[in-house]
Amino acid sequence: MDAVLIFQSLISGIMMGMVYALLGVGFSLTWGVMHVIHISHGAFGLLGAYAAYSLLQYFGVDPIASAAMSVPLLFLMACGLYQLLIRPITRAKNIIMASMILTFGLAIILENIMALIWKADPRVLTPAYSSGALIVGPFYFQYPHLVGFGLSLVGITALYLFLKKTYTGMAVRAAWQQPEAARLYGVNLFQISMITFALAVSTAGAGGICLALLNSFEPHSHNLWLIYLFLVVIVGGVGNVIGTALAGLIIGVITGLSMAFLPFQWVNLVTFGLLMVFLIFRPHGIFKQEGL
């Protein structure tokens, strides 16, 4: 096999994986902290991608700026959504089930709205630098991929620092690990759940924009994204940020390599075969310690 090709696909895998990681971290947190399996997580990512698409198309706004703007906007929107839809169902006996059904419906609604506004044609984000590439020796890195990767790295690092260094971030982790004790020491679980959900949705939006820099997308793309989200969370461990990030990288590399060396039809087979193997042998993910 060609060493350059291996290395090149390894690098694209890592870039892709970092984006999966950013999309996955929020999904993992809502699941771990709130016991909400947020099926519309990918659809919010897609909404971010479409918003960036229109901003670029009509106003020439660079996707980096769109990603930066999408975070506070989606955060506020998600706070409202939490109060309106998610908080009421936390009273349900089986939150996981109720949340899946509710957000499945939400995903379908979002998908249809996006199909109405942006039509069903595949779209690509083509910023001014989209045809440029960084060439290092025999290797070739497209600028949009580098930007998507860089933004994802920034996003994950920011989220990590938030969870590790701020009181609110620590409360998010405390609420996930031991909700009762967290309450006894002053954590308002509803407030923390709202923040968790809003952070997840806003990082999904930014992650969607990053993914759109690497791949084309259409209104139903979120379904496939969702399956990758499950994969990343199951490999990385629910609620585990570092684990999720590493899982994103691992899965990115595996898909990157299989895309380079296997016929197209085999790629998903390999990826989802992996998901099943994981569920059977390591249902709690690959990492022993529930880190951060």
């Binding site: 690990q177 529930e290 880190g291």
Partner: peptide
């Protein structure tokens, strides 16, 4: 009014220092 709960209920995947800091969470 502070309770040390039965079974301790620490935050297992947080460090000792983080557990203590969480005790001083309320404003």
């Amino acid at each position: 009014i502070i309770q040390v709960p039965e079974g301790r209920k620490l935050f297992p995947s947080m460090t000792v220092e983080e557990n203590l800091i969480m005790g001083a969470y309320h404003p």
